[in-house]
Design a protein around this nucleic acid. Structure first.
Lengths: 106, 106
DNA sequence: TCCATAGTTCTAAGATCGTCGAACTACGTT
DNA sequence: AACGTAGTTCGACGATCTTAGAACTATGGA
């Protein structure tokens, strides 16, 4: 039986990313904060760490993290019951060069 | 009596522009189209020209143009009953360098 | 097997948004 | 003063969003 540590969590293909959808998604203070958190971490964060940092209920964070994932801003990897989240930096840089720098400026 | 060709239309100060608000505003297909229209024009457009180009009712366009102005993306100048609209390119470049290039890419 | 943990999904509520006709305002013309 | 034009504002509607508790679904121990 193959390694199934990674659950099948759906992510949009890089070519399918929509600028308008990404802008809409990032134009929400909580989500922008999450993006900056992920960028500062320079590494993947466990969902629980994001929850702790933003201080909102788990269900609310789960909702925002789902929107970020569905817009193609983040990638989520499942290990057991945990979720590890990263920014899709390379994909975003490829598809919308300069966008991430703007989101993360200062 | 002083020249009153310019009505007092409120615009947010450059320093007051909010990235989240701008992203939210630009993450709407109609408004993104308007931004590109204004950029392509290389000049100010009369509101009526924008209406003609996007093909939506005047009242709907007026609504979107108001949001763009309130977010600080555009500047509106009144001459008589007409409104002349420009992108706030310099202000946006100053405040969020790179943003406009991303919005206008291809 | 039973239990705790991590996170998602469900559900419901209230808020905000996008659309567009109708009414209105401001200005120029006659 | 009356009219036409350019554009805004109002009012209503349905649609989408944000929030958060409750119920649920893994998964990893004891």
């Amino acid at each position: 039986m193959p390694n199934r540590a990674l659950r099948e969590i759906p992510h949009p293909a890089t070519e399918a990313l929509s600028l308008a959808a990404i802008l809409r998604t990032c134009g929400e203070p909580v989500r922008l904060e999450m993006i900056r958190l992920l960028a500062d971490a320079q590494d993947e964060l466990r969902a629980g760490q994001v929850v702790g940092a933003v201080g909102l209920p788990t269900s609310t964070c789960s909702y925002h993290l789902r929107l970020l994932r569905e817009a193609g801003v983040t990638r989520t990897r499942a290990v057991g019951t945990e979720r590890y989240i990263t920014l899709r930096q390379d994909d975003l840089d490829t598809r919308f060069p300069g966008l991430l720098q703007v989101l993360l400026a200062e």
